[in-house]
Design a protein around this nucleic acid. Structure first.
Lengths: 244, 244
DNA sequence: GACGGATAAATTGTCAGACATTTAAATGTA
DNA sequence: TACATTTAAATGTCTGACAATTTATCCGTC
């Protein structure tokens, strides 16, 4: 574990980078215990608060976990799908909200990614994932459903669609993307009018997957994309009018 | 900005969560300055080191940046594509390396994602992205190329393919995925034998995109996937023999 | 010998105060 | 006005201490 030259950057950032490199390169393996804060401070020739700041940086990325008490300390954390999800959703959400991504671009990316799943989903969809999709479709048809609940159900449906592909790596990549784009999508589903149409598309998708028909699923997804795009443009136009 | 109840979790984690929520919810906007460390310590009724640990957690996620000096402080950071890339690659790489993802699953996910790009890439590929792909293909054919350089060129080619789709959100999602999976892929391209075949597939893909033929590009990608899968299984089998 | 509770040790979490460093604005001077 | 100096505000770092937590060990009792 190498030391820091006369770098001008923050010491805690340098130390965090050094430890991160050890972990990423596999020289510190999962569940291995890092030296104690005092030992690290001694090794890097800095004070304990500086070491602690470095460790907190790693903890923020879920690279380590800490335990107090004797035989406690910092341990290399096995990054779970769940934690990775959270990281990705936070990153993607902020990236989209902070960079003025146009609705069209986000929409295109989202549906392109989802269409990547349908060939596998048509092949491998299980009674379980189909039941989940049907349940969400049914919920989306309930009259008393709030807008928030409808949007949440929408996310759950698409997540089930992605999970149908039976590939956890794919699920990880896409669930984050779909969830991050949901805030952008929400504004357009906030009308009772469009719910019926969306339920129709969802039903077509579920039906197609149940019949193992990839083509039909892709077609339904593409039409849903086109419909979403139209609604989005209408909303944008309405906003422009309201503003001007 | 709410305070912390009698929670047992670390104070710095709680404070970081509170500030993160402010940023994600948009109540702290880009380039807005956070209160100084002393003011935050006063507000949350904790010491300055504790506040600093919280701020370092946010800095690790690129949510804030800090500047020293008068009128310095912590500012909400505009998350750039570049930073988001880095986050995603780190997360994805660790997720894959720490969770015993099978080669087949990773391979399937990667090519499924790439095939999601070809319809758009066939439509929008530019002379620029085509030239990049051709240049990388040429490099991959050089006899003296090291294995590391070949793998790097392979990544660059696939990245150009993704960029051809002309959708930055898609590029962000996929470049991270492709790059994270590269270490898994590397072991199988470490044979001179397979280079020629891979160059052939790459050429077919570039040709297909140049002719705006999505179907041919998808076919070439699928064959490359099948070939990669075969090579991977051979390597695995050879390893099993060597071990047993 | 076995069990249970007090004790000790190690480690992280938190605090207080101080000093160093950096940066930009304010001030003073030619 | 232009330039150098001072000043103030903020982050970066250090020292030392204490609190809280957890495990292992020791010891007495049954």
């Amino acid at each position: 574990m190498k030391i820091d030259p006369d770098n001008k950057a923050d010491l805690s950032a340098q130390i965090a980078a050094a430890l991160r490199e050890e972990i990423v390169a596999g020289r510190l393996i999962v569940d291995e215990r890092l030296p104690s804060e005092a030992e690290l401070a001694d090794h890097f020739e800095v004070s304990r608060p500086t070491v602690r700041e470095a460790l907190k940086r790693l903890a923020a990325q879920s690279l380590i976990r800490t335990a107090r008490g004797a035989f406690g300390g910092a341990f290399v954390n096995r990054l779970s799908y769940r934690e990775a999800y959270g990281q990705q959703i936070t990153t993607s959400t902020l990236l989209l909200s902070m960079n003025a991504i146009s609705f069209d671009v986000a929409c295109e990316a989202r549906f392109a990614l989802e269409r990547a799943c349908t060939p596998l989903a048509a092949l491998r969809r299980t009674p379980d994932t189909l039941a989940t999709m049907r349940a969400e479709i049914h919920r989306q048809g309930q009259p008393g459903l709030t807008d928030e609940a409808f949007c949440a159900s929408d996310v759950a449906f698409h997540r089930a669609l992605v999970d149908s592909a039976g590939n956890p790596v794919l699920s990880y990549q896409l669930a984050g993307a779909v969830e991050a784009m949901q805030p952008l999508m929400n504004m357009i589903t906030f009308t009772a009018r469009s719910r019926e149409a969306i339920v129709g598309f969802h039903t077509r998708i579920a039906d197609a997957l149940e019949r193992h028909e990839d083509g039909a699923a892709q077609a339904a997804l593409s039409e849903l994309e086109a419909y979403t795009l139209t609604l989005g443009r209408d909303v944008m136009a309405a906003r422009a009018v309201a503003k001007g």
